[in-house]
Design a protein around this nucleic acid. Structure first.
Lengths: 206, 206
DNA sequence: TTGGTCACTTACCATATGGTAGACAGATCT
DNA sequence: AGATCTGTCTACCATATGGTAAGTGACCAA
């Protein structure tokens, strides 16, 4: 049986397995990822993977858990920013884009989650539930106090989420639209999203 | 060799295969769909599928082609609506929601396309290219004539697309947010999207 | 009647997949 | 030194997968 704290070390085998699995799940997808291919990329036998994670599904769960934590930590900070409603929304969107530049696999996994069946998706959503609740409550409070145009808070959240994820993960569509995955393009996409959201949310012109 | 016009008839074997494949590709995903499972659902031997579509990839291409045509036909009509800029945008969004109620698999496939590798996604995007160009040009013209707030047309298109698709296909997230997939919920989601888009696009208050 | 085509079936097959059993080297403990 | 534990490897396996080869009965034209 594997030691429980083996995952902590960044360079340990289980940590490397998690990294590779996250990357492959995010790009190729869960079903399209084979343990053999994963092991080959790590220069390790497949059975080593199964030693640390007794099944492919357990591996997925581990990836989900770790990613949800990283995602929460990255966003909760910016969600706690000071300032009026719009400033805070902008801070969160900016931090998502920063995250996408630093760890694109994380966003890819988020997208993949929406596709996987109930067990995995539910686990992921459950892990992010506190973040979602806080964001939803924040939006509602800001609308109550008149800082933002009135919308259904949870649906607004879904709309923001979908747009941001779309702008960051729809690589084929972006290519078809002439947007290559460069840093410059990322900045343009961020500006566009912020522009759209501001005009949809802000009540009075600054 | 199969006869080329076998697909035309709605109840023919190839047409039924296409229907089942579309449904499974849209919900389970392409890789997670096995020809055996597909055949079992149709009460047909797997080899019958391979008789009409010589490989799984060819079957996917056929599904893509047929779906792209249906999608184009459904949207081109509403895109040709008369009226000012916003009215036409609203008409298109409404027709997408109508389509989602009638043929939810079609929207599911669209979502799946963004996930599949270059060959499939490219084929799909290419088939929809005329529609995308026309929509993009329309948006640009409306912005030039001052009917709409200025945005990057292609990125705006992607934003609208992402939001609509998200509202219609993010079933797990919607459930977590308390939105069950009922007809009533669909109406609320549509209202929310239209509200968001209107405030983001329309220049003068009506 | 016969020859051929069409739609589909039964019988196989090579490969890849997730997963199991057990051996083995090195470190750690007694 | 001997026993135990840890991490990895070699060897194997049952199953599922996409795909091939060779039929079979129905229909149809000559």
């Amino acid at each position: 049986m594997p030691t429980s704290n083996g995952v902590a070390d960044e360079t340990s085998t289980p940590a490397r397995i998690l990294d590779a699995a996250l990357a492959s799940f995010a790009t190729r997808g869960y079903e399209a990822t084979s343990l053999d291919a994963l092991a080959a990329g790590l220069e390790v036998r497949k059975q080593t993977i199964l030693y640390w994670f007794p099944s492919k599904e357990v591996l997925l769960d581990a990836v989900i858990d770790r990613s949800a934590i990283e995602l929460s930590e990255a966003l909760e900070g910016s969600l706690a920013t000071a300032g009026t409603g719009w400033v805070r929304v902008e801070a969160v969107v900016r931090s998502v884009f920063r995250l996408a530049a630093r760890q694109p696999e994380l966003l890819g996994l988020v997208r993949e989650m929406g596709r996987l069946g109930a067990p995995a998706a539910t686990r992921f959503v459950a892990a992010l539930e506190p973040l979602v609740s806080r964001a939803s409550e924040f939006l509602e409070a800001e609308m109550d106090s008149g800082h933002m145009r009135r919308h259904e808070p949870r649906l607004l959240l879904l709309a923001i989420y979908s747009t941001v994820i779309g702008m960051l993960t729809e690589v084929e569509l972006l290519r078809a639209l002439g947007e290559e995955p460069t840093a410059r393009s990322l900045v343009r996409r961020r500006a566009e999203i912020l522009d759209l959201l501001r005009s949809a949310l802000v009540t009075s012109t600054a």
